[in-house]
Amino acid sequence: MTGLLDIRRLSVAFGPTRALSDIDLALEPGTRLGLVGESGSGKSTLGLAVLGLLPPDAACTGEVRFQGEPLPWSDDRAMTRVRGRRIGFIYQDPMAAFSPVHTIGTHITRALRAAHPGVGRREALDWSVALLEEVEINKPRERLDHYPNEYSGGMLQRVMIAAALVGDPDLLIADEPTTALDVTTQASVLGMLDRIVEARGMGFILISHDLGVVAEACREVAVMYGGKLIQRVALADLKAEAHPYTRALLEARPTFGKRGQRLSTIADFLPSDWFDDA
């Protein structure tokens, strides 16, 4: 069986600063992987690199294969046929993802008609309603006529998820999709994402600094530090098989059992014997 995603020796540098170092990561169809690490570990860079969305000054080497074929990073026209249609991407900030002068209906119908040439306006509207229903937005037909500022943060995040599904992708990458949401809304969005990924049978990569968030929607976790992938393990085995850095991440999380205690912190420079070539 052809793998869904195969990343081979992927490295990214911005001038003298190396953001990713020789990343190897493979996903089979239906894999649900959490990509975790502290800020600056390279998680978001990895997601953007896969889709060829890094800025022009990024020096990128290595190869990414999707469903057995190399992704054509150097051909932007070819990559537009991958983005959205075969790989969906959910960005961190829903407020910055939509034009304030266009309705939500305009955003989604344009994306649908771009992903599915030949779809008429009426069909695109009906399809948009179905997508908003799938992400659990009430009165979806009415809400298509609303502007982004008329949505709450949680609802706008749901719209962004709907927009990422317009091409019926085989892989969905979500970059910190619940960062700006309160705990209740976060749980609701994660539950909804879990149901959609399961129903569609998609591969799923959830990028987050929060292991608790990953535990809600993933079955495996890959841990990054300093641009390197240091561990991949089944979520059920995480505590028993945790790498020292992964254990430090777990201990840094606030829990009810630590109430009144000082939280653990992670040093700026970690022991060199934690890593093969650090």
Rank of each mutant, 00 (worst) to 15 (best):
A49S: 14
W73L: 14
F98S: 04
D126H: 12
K228R: 07
L125F: 05
A114Q: 06
H243L: 10
D273P: 07
A26M: 02
L156M: 09
Y91L: 08
S264E: 12
P56R: 12
R86D: 10
V135Y: 01
A187M: 07
A174S: 00
Q231V: 10
G257K: 08
A217T: 15
L48Q: 13
A267S: 12
A26R: 14
L238W: 13
A163Y: 00
Q92G: 09
V82N: 09
P100I: 15
I161N: 02
L211K: 06
I7Y: 03
Q231M: 11
V12N: 01
L229I: 02
T31Y: 10
T265S: 13
L54G: 13
R262D: 08
V214M: 09
L263G: 14
A114E: 09
V159E: 02
S152F: 04
I173H: 00
G88I: 03
D276T: 08
A114S: 05
Y225Q: 09
T179N: 06
L165K: 08
G227M: 03
H146E: 15
L35C: 02
I230R: 03
G201D: 01
G37H: 06
A58V: 11
L238C: 04
D6R: 14
G201Q: 11
A96D: 02
R113A: 05
A115I: 02
E133M: 12
P117V: 00
R83T: 14
R86L: 11
M155C: 05
E38H: 05
G227F: 12
M202Y: 07
E142W: 12
Y225N: 10
R65N: 12
R262Q: 06
K258G: 00
D22C: 00
R200W: 00
E150N: 15
G40L: 14
L171C: 04
Q67R: 13
V189W: 10
K258M: 02
S272R: 13
L235N: 08
L125I: 15
L171H: 03
V101I: 13
T17L: 12
S44H: 03
D182H: 09
Y151N: 13
H209V: 12
L172I: 11
A267L: 09
Y225A: 04
C218K: 08
A234W: 05
T178E: 01
L35D: 07
T17C: 08
E220M: 08
E123L: 04
D182L: 06
V50P: 07
M160A: 13
A234P: 14
M160G: 11
S128H: 11
L270Q: 13
E198W: 01
T109F: 14
I266N: 05
K239F: 15
I266G: 04
G153A: 15
F66P: 12
E142Y: 13
D57R: 15
Y151D: 05
G212I: 03
G42S: 01
V223M: 06
S264A: 13
R259W: 03
R113M: 10
G62F: 04
D24T: 04
T178L: 10
S272T: 13
A78S: 06
V129K: 03
G191F: 00
I90L: 09
L20K: 00
T61Q: 10
V135T: 12
L181A: 08
F275A: 10
Q92N: 03
